[in-house]
Amino acid sequence: MAEQLYWHDIEDTLGNWSGLGVEVEPGATDKPPLYLRTGANARIRLMHHDTPLFWATLARDYGGVWLVRNPLADGAECRLLAPIDSPTVEQHAALAPEQRIKAWSRYFVSRLSESARHFLTPGYWLAQGLLPESPSTARGLDNWRFNSRDDALTHLPNWRLYGEDFLDNLQPQTLEWIDWWHGGGKLIGLHRVDPEAGRLKWWRKKAREGSLPPVLLWYVGGLASYVVIDGHYRLQAALAENLAPSFIVLSATRVRDFAPSLEHQQRVMDSLRKRGDSVSRNPALSTENLNRVLIQAFDDRPHYHSATQAWASHETEAQWCDEVRQCLSGQGLADEVEAVIARRG
């Protein structure tokens, strides 16, 4: 039986949509089809059912993460959602631009919840838009910049992504170094994209028409990176057409209540009283600015913090090391094995 979930729109103080909050009630105890398995000494696997899609481990200096793809898993696509049909694409394309991310967020969350073993584990989740900045989107992949809605008044995670951090899905590398000191996290695909596939050609047409659906991402805290869980071909279509896509980021989240400081509130009120009629003499003290100061001082809405869920591994660390050694050696990368296993950046 699938878990019950409830969603609600999260808006800022001006009524602008900032994200979709999703509460998933405890239900079946089975693992989802896609999940993280973690072990001793910072050893990580991303599992699709019983098959590792990749292995990962943090460098000892926390400067980044080694990512080792499993080439044996490349033939089996990790499909969590049914393909998006043409009527659904056209229905969303007819919406005003500011409504599309909101509508697509509801679409993806609804579809993810339909399976008896769905991806959204019990707890609280957020779905947020990650949209291209303008005008950098027109200058090629290395100049692409993407941001979530930057709104301090909703206390949501603030996501960033750069085109230079997209990993190649046409010719994915077995071994990747995710450098946290220079560039931050990466955009990680889970399978190879066929450049001759008919659906890629269809999505390229939709990209040119301006109706390309967002690419669905999962933020994985242990990697400080985004994993594509739906939309590999949509992403590739956007790259082929040099048209920056939009994204929706799913993140497992902890919600923490927040109580404003009474002393701070009193200091703010005393300061505003002393200013008296200075609003008319100082343009910086407009009514809008005063309202923002008061809202921030008395805002008691909860804070949201990303917290990726993982399952403890029963395998020994030696087994993880053997799997990585066998994978890298089989791909002609035996010289890199020791750096990965020793967690050297």
Rank of each mutant, 00 (worst) to 15 (best):
I10N: 00
I10G: 01
E11F: 08
T13P: 00
L14D: 14
S18K: 13
G21H: 04
G21R: 06
V22G: 07
A28E: 13
G39K: 00
A40D: 12
N41W: 10
N41C: 07
R43D: 04
T57V: 06
D61E: 13
G64N: 09
V65N: 06
I84S: 03
P87F: 15
A96E: 14
R106S: 13
Y107K: 06
Y107D: 09
E114S: 07
H118N: 15
A127T: 04
L131P: 01
T137E: 10
A138D: 14
R145A: 06
N147F: 11
N147G: 01
S148V: 12
D150C: 00
H155E: 12
R160I: 15
Q171A: 14
P172H: 11
Q173W: 07
T174G: 05
T174F: 10
L175R: 12
W181F: 09
L187Q: 13
H191V: 10
R192N: 05
E196W: 08
K205V: 10
E209H: 09
L216R: 04
Y219P: 13
G221F: 02
V228F: 06
L235K: 03
Q236M: 13
A240L: 01
A240C: 09
L243N: 10
A252W: 05
D257S: 13
D270T: 11
V279P: 04
V279C: 12
V293D: 00
A297T: 07
F298G: 03
D299R: 00
Y304F: 15
Y304S: 01
H305V: 08
T308K: 02
Q309V: 14
G332M: 04
D335K: 12
E336F: 05
E336Y: 05
E338F: 05
G345F: 15
